[in-house]
């Protein structure tokens, strides 16, 4: 592994994952409670908006509004979770507690830290996605077995945002700068065709939305959710993975520059 990913870290990155798991060991209730959150959202939408909005078309099939929205929310939660794990926590260890500096006095390398944090974000998203998809099946918002593929889809989403977030956190100067992250993630959340189909957007905006990784993710997951495979899924997935690799490479370089000049 060390030889396969010389720039990005080694097997030791798993120790960083272990460290984060150790932290949550004492806070398991909070960790576990994350898994019920999607239930609230899906229930609320199912109760109220299914009835008001009627059915929408996904891959040529009519679906309820909750079925339409749920994959978008899974994509959004993969994004938000990745941002929390890759921006807030690493920023604290990078610039406030300087915990990374002490980790670098051990055999761990800068690349191990960057990769480890990204892996942790992935692991957490993976668990969350499993429970989310479980809730979707339970509430009837997913029915096709292909919906299980939403889990790896959510992982790709998380990988893209976790890597970009990790790169971004190295540029932040203080807690105040987190507003900039919100300024980035908020429009993505609201305007990535998560709540309504792209066809409702004005043409110019629709072109912009097309570049949004969250839109690509939501659309990918939505197709999988109803079991409708189409060839466009491949470039969407590739786009997310490419962002992840670019982000991780930048993050590893920036980490090296800050921690080991």
């Amino acid at each position: 592994m060390g030889r396969v990913l010389p720039v990005l870290g080694s097997r030791r990155a798993l120790h960083v994952v272990e460290r984060n798991a150790m932290f949550y060991r004492n806070q398991w209730l909070m960790f576990a409670s994350g898994f019920v959150e999607p239930l609230f959202y899906l229930l609320s939408i199912g109760i109220g908006l299914n009835h008001l909005v009627g059915t929408l078309d996904v891959g040529g099939r009519p679906v309820t509004y909750a079925t339409f929205v749920a994959p978008g929310m899974l994509a959004t939660s993969a994004m938000n979770g990745a941002i929390i794990d890759s921006v807030f926590n690493p920023f604290f260890r990078l610039k406030i507690s300087h915990a990374y500096d002490s980790m670098l006095t051990t055999p761990l390398d800068v690349g191990d830290i960057a990769l480890g944090e990204a892996l942790w974000a992935l692991a957490r998203t993976g668990l969350y996605a499993v429970s989310f998809v479980g809730c979707m099946f339970a509430l009837g918002d997913a029915s096709s077995p292909l919906a299980l593929l939403e889990i790896p889809g959510a992982l790709a989403t998380s990988f893209a945002f976790a890597s970009l977030g990790l790169a971004a956190c190295t540029y932040l100067r203080s807690w105040q700068d987190f507003d900039l992250i919100t300024l980035f993630s908020l429009p993505l959340f609201l305007f990535s065709a998560t709540f309504f189909p792209l066809s409702l957007y004005p043409r110019l905006l629709a072109t912009l939305v097309w570049f949004s990784p969250l839109y690509q993710s939501a659309t990918l997951l939505r197709g999988l959710n109803v079991g409708h495979l189409d060839p466009w899924m491949i470039p969407r997935l590739a786009y997310l993975c490419a962002l992840g690799i670019i982000g991780l490479a930048i993050a590893a370089r920036r980490f090296r520059r800050l921690l080991s000049p």
């Binding site: 909005v53 009627g54 509004y65 609201l190 709540f195 309504f196 409702l200």
Partner: peptide, 15 residues
């Protein structure tokens, strides 16, 4: 914007 206008469009169409 997203709910009022976007989802609003869907709602007024349907209900």
């Amino acid at each position: 914007g997203a709910l009022g206008v976007g989802v609003g469009h869907l709602v007024s169409h349907h209900s």
